[in-house]
Design a protein around this nucleic acid. Sequence first.
DNA 1: TTTTTTAGTGAACAGGTGTTGACAAAAAGG
DNA 2: CCTTTTTGTCAACACCTGTTCACTAAAAAA
Lengths: 217, 217
Amino acid sequence: MTRETPSKTRKPKRGQTREALMAAALDLVVKKAPFSSLSLREVTKRAGVVPTAFYRHFSDMSALGLTLLDESFRTLRQMMRQVRQEQRPDENMLRGSVETYFNYVGENRAHFLFVAKELFGGTPTMRNAIRREIRMFTNELAMDMARFPFLNHFSSEDLQMMAALVVNNVTALTQEMLELEENDEFGQQQVLIAAEKQLRLIFLGVTQWKSSSPATS
Amino acid sequence: MTRETPSKTRKPKRGQTREALMAAALDLVVKKAPFSSLSLREVTKRAGVVPTAFYRHFSDMSALGLTLLDESFRTLRQMMRQVRQEQRPDENMLRGSVETYFNYVGENRAHFLFVAKELFGGTPTMRNAIRREIRMFTNELAMDMARFPFLNHFSSEDLQMMAALVVNNVTALTQEMLELEENDEFGQQQVLIAAEKQLRLIFLGVTQWKSSSPATS
DNA sequence: TTTTTTAGTGAACAGGTGTTGACAAAAAGG
DNA sequence: CCTTTTTGTCAACACCTGTTCACTAAAAAA
């Protein structure tokens, strides 16, 4: 027979602790420091558990980081698929894609901030994982471009170069967007307009491009 | 006339330790972690002094960081001046500028790595300082562009947008360059070639650009 | 039910952290 | 020379870090 002393320390936390840890880490990244400089105890404190509970779910902080990274890119890929489905090769394609993308950024600030801060500040493992993912996006964009009739005469190196140009800029603009306050709708609109203009200019250059240097081989 | 000023400004060789601290911090940033996650003791240890000696030169780590940032941008601005001086508006202008710039990046890896890692991972103070500097470069580039006859009919907004496009890409390519091993000369050459192509494509777009949206009046 | 596996707690450790204060050597100023 | 200011050292503090161990409540399996 267990003597029910009314209110001692409650323990029933059940299996949502893992998600609480991930949410806590993301939260701290948003309003404090890059993930790399978070401490295990800090995260567990914010998640409302004792430090040792951490080890029931992750082997160490870097494991948590990789899980978070995976989560970030899973949702991002899912959005890219959506952008691609909506994509019709007409006038408004560019504007639509840009809007969809930056809307998504706005709705997933935490994940994007996490990735942006790790892109250079993280461990080599993290950095490589992120860069691999970005390279993948670049490749897919290059392949998408190759399907357009007025682009498919370019060499794959040129297409790759053009795709990289686009991705570089979108990345930079995303970072710019993330530096803005969450409620700075005017600033966000400005970035969006700038993004559209810059991409339009790039595609203007693409239509004029002729591969003058055969390069390697 | 140029005699020793017998003034009260005493500055014999006061600086050995101070510079050792800065060098140590930079060194740790290169081969370990972002500056934000360095500890005071770590830096003093590498500099070969006792922790308390630190306070004779800097009030805290963030003061060291800002000094380092200042140093980085002072040398960078100096190089930009050099690029601008060499700049003649002819065919080889772009290639020459790109080469000069990336050469400089290679010779100052430590400073660029420091800046790159703080650009997103640093404290708000640091981030703002860096972004202000980048914005300054963008403005100067826009002003340089305005001096070209075939560009001076663009609105200053358009010029600003184009300059931002260039700066965004150079920044991204610089980061790409920094991710390479210091002795990976092939990879570095590849980045340089890509950089030149991308910038050429951008300027191709610029020549075709016409400001369709008058935007804000 | 009983048994086993999972997921939480709390105390304790060895070590790293920023910062303090008192003190000493060395350089600068007279 | 002597005095003052600068610049380093050493010891100590209170705190935070990751990680271990033994223990227990709750959930799952039997």
